[in-house]
Design a protein around this nucleic acid. Structure first.
Lengths: 162, 162
DNA sequence: TATTGTTATACTCTATAACTATA
DNA sequence: TATAGTTATAGAGTATAACAATA
């Protein structure tokens, strides 16, 4: 990596385009994030398929596990999923018996969404899946490296525009 | 973060589901990668729009800048883009005068793809855009933190399954 | 008979907005 | 008149495979 970084600093107007392109790519944190996020998502999707779930369903279940008794609008806001997508994902999850829409006591046009017992029972398995995916993903790092990565990720995620 | 990690270790069977869900999410490197990759891509897409380009076009241009005179099949393999997507993206880029398909000297059913002069001239601007996006993204980190993140990303990316 | 690139077509996802029923 | 949720529909993106030209 040091080699790469110094490569960037050695660039001049005469450096060939191909070298500049390669250096740009390999020194781009964004590019690495893109690729690695893709790897993680592919693995997660594959493992969720064993439960008959897609990523969207999983995200909703995780959100509800953290806090349920929310309206569909509230649910969608937390994960930036539009209302029509929420409707369809909940139709699927309700059909699968994992979530439940109950009538709101205050407003008859709102629903309150809950995990069912069956949904709650599934969550520990999904937590384990998340853990497995992360372990596989972080396998190339030492324990110390994992800790510093975790710290850096939290710092980046805490940033206002992130 | 230390608090979070210790939170995970304090989990027992009696820990409420909501706490376990939150800890699972916040300690998941994959979850952070997903979110952050999304932030970066949104920023990149927005800036590419100024050039009338989408991410796919940008990826192809970067790939060709690094190495052109490749067949469409070779091009697609490098970036895992299927042949029909390559065909359409190249139609667009050729129309925009940024790339050129030339006949292969050996095989009359293959094309060799090149950046045009106009495409080459555009690349330095795209390198600068990549740089801007990364600078904005990494702004919350100190210089040292950026260096260690870079090192960790390279280690992860170098892994065989990544 | 296999391969390169293109095209047709179907399928899925996403986006827009219309609609129902509330408030 | 505005809101919560649903639905219809259009459009974009993606996947499958058929196809023509070539090897």
């Amino acid at each position: 990596m040091q080699q790469l970084l110094s490569m960037v600093f050695q660039m001049t107007k005469d450096t060939p385009l191909s070298k500049r392109a390669k250096a740009t790519r390999l020194t781009s944190a964004g590019w690495h994030f893109q690729r690695l996020a893709c790897v993680v998502e592919r693995d997660m999707s594959a493992r969720l398929a064993a439960h008959g779930l897609k990523i969207d369903h999983f995200v909703i279940l995780m959100t509800l596990a953290e806090r349920d008794n929310v309206t569909q609008t509230q649910l969608g806001e937390g994960i930036s999923m539009p209302n029509y997508a929420i409707t369809r994902a909940l139709d699927f999850l309700e059909e699968a018996g994992l979530v439940e829409r109950r009538k709101d006591a205050q407003s008859r046009r709102s629903h309150r969404v809950f995990l069912t017992q069956s949904g709650s029972d599934l969550m520990p398995k999904l937590f384990a899946t998340v853990s497995d995916v992360n372990d596989a993903f972080l396998a190339p790092l030492t324990k110390d490296e994992r800790a510093s990565l975790a710290k850096l990720l939290v710092t980046l995620s805490a940033s206002p525009d992130a």
